[in-house]
């Protein structure tokens, strides 16, 4: 059995040429009519900006990125679910922001790379309508199979329902579990002994959690 050694010249070039994010958005909007792809700026030094796909055209845009775009983004590396609560969005956009901007939603973020050229990450996101009843998003599993288990996990922990997923059921928690634990408003079952350390809310929880002895003073 032989083991080939890489001789591909492009691997010698260490500069990772991430295409300009606005040009990517323009290219998708040109290729797919009515796609409405927006750029979400990331003010962080990492410089990883992302695209926001509209839910109706998300799968078509994704397929274009994978198969027909000049970048051949065939490797989906990471799928993340995020719970943006109203309070968090008020922190992000300011307390006086429009109610449109601070209405809470759930989000699914995808990181794409290419196996043929050192490009990446290209980040795109899809958002739900709200956090309560409009929680479905299109699934990217028909486009990249690596989304299969990761979207199941997001369904389990966040409650986002992915339309078009071949096998959507809980991944980490047991089937009869109710609730979505990674959401910010999830209340954990109260089953561990609070140890009173000098934090105000831990002391309160400890007093409420345990029955103090009827007599006999402190332990």
């Amino acid at each position: 059995m032989e083991h080939r050694l890489p001789a591909s010249p492009h691997m010698e070039n260490m500069s990772v040429n991430i295409p300009e994010i606005q040009s990517v958005a323009d290219a998708i909007n040109d290729a797919i009519a009515g796609a409405g792809v927006l750029v979400i700026e990331n003010e962080n030094p990492s410089g990883q900006h992302s695209l926001l796909f509209q839910n109706e055209h998300a799968v078509a845009c994704a397929r274009w990125l994978k198969q027909e775009s000049p970048w051949k983004l065939d490797y989906l590396s990471n799928v993340t679910g995020i719970d943006w609560t109203e309070d968090a969005l008020k922190v992000k956009f300011g307390k006086d922001a429009e109610p449109e901007e601070t209405r809470g939603f759930l989000e699914s973020v995808y990181h794409l790379y290419s196996m043929e050229a050192p490009i990446g990450p290209l980040v795109f996101r899809t958002r739900t309508g709200n956090r309560s009843d409009d929680v479905s998003l299109p699934s990217m599993t028909p486009v990249w199979r690596s989304a299969e288990l990761q979207e199941r996990e997001i369904f389990d922990l966040y409650g986002i329902h992915f339309k078009g997923h071949p096998d959507l059921r809980r991944l980490m928690m047991w089937d009869s579990f109710e609730g979505h634990p990674m959401r910010k408003d999830y209340v954990e079952p109260d089953d561990y002994e609070y140890e009173p350390t000098p934090h105000a809310d831990v002391l309160k929880k400890s007093a409420a959690h345990q029955n103090p002895p009827a007599k006999g003073g402190d332990q």
Partner: peptide, 9 residues
Amino acid sequence: PPAGEAYGR
């Protein structure tokens, strides 16, 4: 850290 996001691998 400053606000925003990052992915490192």
